[in-house]
Structures are given as structure tokens and as C-alpha cells.
Design a protein around this nucleic acid. Structure first.
Length: 304
DNA sequence: AACTTCCGCAACCGCATACCT
DNA sequence: GAGGTATGCGGTTGCGGAAGT
């Protein structure tokens, strides 16, 4: 939960203290800090009856001693029925990574492409997880180098997530540990990766990327290589991503999408290169032996 | 068990922009 | 179009629980 006794000066909706007796009175009545269950219920019920919007008047009409701003935030980030909870899936993490590459800290814009996720959540995720990982790896979270490495790390987990009879990693690539993946794919990594995302679906979130008019979809194909093929995700993405628990969510994440969407990851024995010429060696450095860096990466995944 | 440090996340703040009147 | 208000965004804070000592 959050701060409960913040004494910060003034919110955008606040007025200065002591302007007038009425304002001071109103000011003293305003609550801040964590929301109580009663407040949540009040807000939810009011919105159910009257709809959202016009937050200041809504707050007053609902009898909430909160700023409209606070009510809006509580609703959008927590109470809204379609807010998705829980850890980000590999798909979502990759998508965030890619969209952040493209748009930077435009959290709201990024959130528009992750249904059920709020800008606040994504922002927190980025700051707490991603930046921490970058720090552990001693590089900048915004650097291409870091992002390429993270993609490379996460890609195999798209497959892991899709463990329902769909062990897609072929033969000796059929592992669950990043360590195994690394040891077997190190050379490939040094050479590069090809990722293709057949566009057989149109309504899942990965597919959403395909529709970007600015070419975001191409991000998924930004690795280049040739060589033996490794199927990484056959709809794992959408299937696991959905993890629907309610019929409402199921509507949002049709299972058919999971059946159709596939991603093919090719790990090469030679050929292409990461766009960052230094990356291949850098990644290889990770995987040579069991380095401290490596285990940090293992832990990183577990944390996700 | 008691204490300290770390860290995730909800909520806040200030500012920018959109939307009235 | 000036002034006021509402909404939205991105950055920041600090509570509280987990992990470490």
C-alpha cells in the first residue's frame, strides 16, 4: 500500500491553506493516503450507478472526502473491473521492452497496448525491475545493448510459459533452465537470432503490435540469423498471457488466438549478427561458464 | 527474536493540455 | 481568446512487508 500520512503541500486540486475559512474547512476534511474498503465500495457503487468522469463533482456527490484526482487514480489503477493483476508475462515484458524502445517513458501510450495494464503499473515495473536488472548487469536500461540482451533472455521463456503439451524447443534445445538454454545457444547467440511472428491472429496483444502504423511489429523480427530452427512460442504468448479466469476476460483473450499465433525463433550456428556488433560478444560473455552475471540473470527470470 | 535494510507498489505531486464558459 | 476548471501524464515519495543480519 501507499503512504498514509503524506504532508506534501498541495495537489493540483488542492487550494492553499487559510485562504478562507470555508476552504480551510474543506481542506481539513480531505482524506489522502491509502483507500479504505468502504471508500472503495463507495466509489465503485457510485460509478456503477452514475458512470465515471467529472471526478471532482463525482467525489463530492459520492460523499468521498477525496479529491477528484484521487478518485480517478483509484478507479483507473485499481478498481476498474478490467484491471489485470499479477506478474507480467514474458510476452508483456517483451512488448514493454519493445514499446519503450520506441516511445521511451510514454507510459500511458505503452499501456494502451497492454490491455488491463495501467501506465502506473508499467512505469513501476520498469523502474523497479528493468532498471534493477540493468544495474545488475552494469549497463543502461535504455541502451540497445541491454534491451537486446533482455529480449534474448526472455524469448525462450515464451516457450516455457506454453508448457501445455507444447514443448516447442526442439531436441537438445528442450530445456527449462536459462543455463541450459545459454550453454546450448551461446554460439548461436553470438551469431544472432531470427524471430518471426506469423500474423495469423488479429486480436491478441502481440498481434496488436502488428497493426501499429509506425512499424512496431517489426521489432519482433529485429534479430537476424540463419541456421537450425527452434520453435519458441506456438501461441504460448497469447495463451499464457490470457490466463483468463472470467468469461469476460475470455472474451478479451480468445483461446483461438493462442492456437493460431506462432512465433518461430531460429538460433543460428553462424550467419547474422545482432545489430549491436558488440552485443554478441557481450552476451557470450554471460554464458561462458557459470558467471556471477549469469546467475543474476537466472534470478532475474525467477523474479519476473 | 529483535533489529535493520531493501524494495515493490499505491498514491501523491506538479505540470501540461483539453475543455468549457 | 482570456480565464478558470477538469483531466491526463510522468516523476517521485514513502509505507509496509520481505529479506537479511
Amino acid at each position: 500500500m501507499a503512504a498514509s500520512q503524506r504532508s506534501g503541500s498541495s495537489d493540483g486540486d488542492d487550494h492553499h491553506r487559510g485562504e478562507s475559512p470555508e476552504e480551510e474547512q474543506e481542506q481539513l476534511e480531505l482524506r489522502r493516503g491509502p483507500w479504505t474498503v468502504d471508500e472503495d465500495l463507495t466509489l465503485v457503487n457510485y460509478i456503477a450507478d452514475h458512470g465515471e468522469g467529472r471526478w471532482n463533482s463525482l467525489a463530492r456527490a459520492a460523499g468521498l472526502k477525496r479529491t477528484g484526482k484521487s478518485c480517478r487514480l483509484r478507479w483507473l489503477n485499481y478498481l476498474r473491473p478490467d484491471v489485470k493483476r499479477g506478474n507480467f508475462t514474458a510476452d508483456e515484458q517483451l512488448l514493454i521492452l519493445d514499446l519503450h524502445t520506441r516511445w521511451g517513458n510514454r507510459w500511458s501510450k505503452i499501456a494502451q497496448h497492454l490491455p488491463g495494464r495501467t501506465d502506473n503499473e508499467i512505469k513501476n515495473y520498469w523502474r523497479t525491475r528493468v532498471q534493477k536488472h540493468a544495474k545488475q548487469l552494469n549497463c543502461d536500461a535504455n541502451s540497445k545493448r541491454f534491451k537486446d540482451a533482455m529480449r534474448y533472455l526472455w524469448m525462450p521463456h515464451l516457450a516455457d510459459a506454453d508448457d501445455h503439451r507444447r514443448r516447442l524447443l526442439h531436441a537438445h534445445h528442450h530445456h527449462h533452465h536459462t543455463a541450459d538454454f545459454f550453454s546450448s545457444a551461446t554460439a548461436a547467440a553470438a551469431a544472432g537470432i531470427v524471430v518471426t511472428m506469423p500474423t495469423t491472429s488479429s486480436s491478441d496483444s502481440l498481434a496488436t503490435a502488428e497493426s501499429y502504423d509506425d512499424g512496431t511489429a517489426g521489432i519482433y523480427a529485429s534479430f537476424h540469423a540463419a541456421g537450425e530452427e527452434m520453435l519458441v512460442s506456438g501461441g504460448a504468448a497469447a495463451g499464457e498471457w490470457a490466463a483468463p479466469e472470467t468469461s469476460q476476460e475470455r472474451t478479451m483473450w480468445p483461446s483461438a488466438v493462442a492456437e493460431q499465433s506462432t512465433a518461430v525463433m531460429q538460433v543460428a550456428g553462424g550467419g547474422g549478427q545482432f545489430e549491436d556488433p558488440e552485443l554478441s560478444g557481450w552476451v557470450q560473455g554471460f554464458s561462458e561458464g557459470i558467471t556471477e552475471n549469469f546467475w543474476a540473470l537466472e534470478d532475474i527470470w525467477k523474479i519476473q
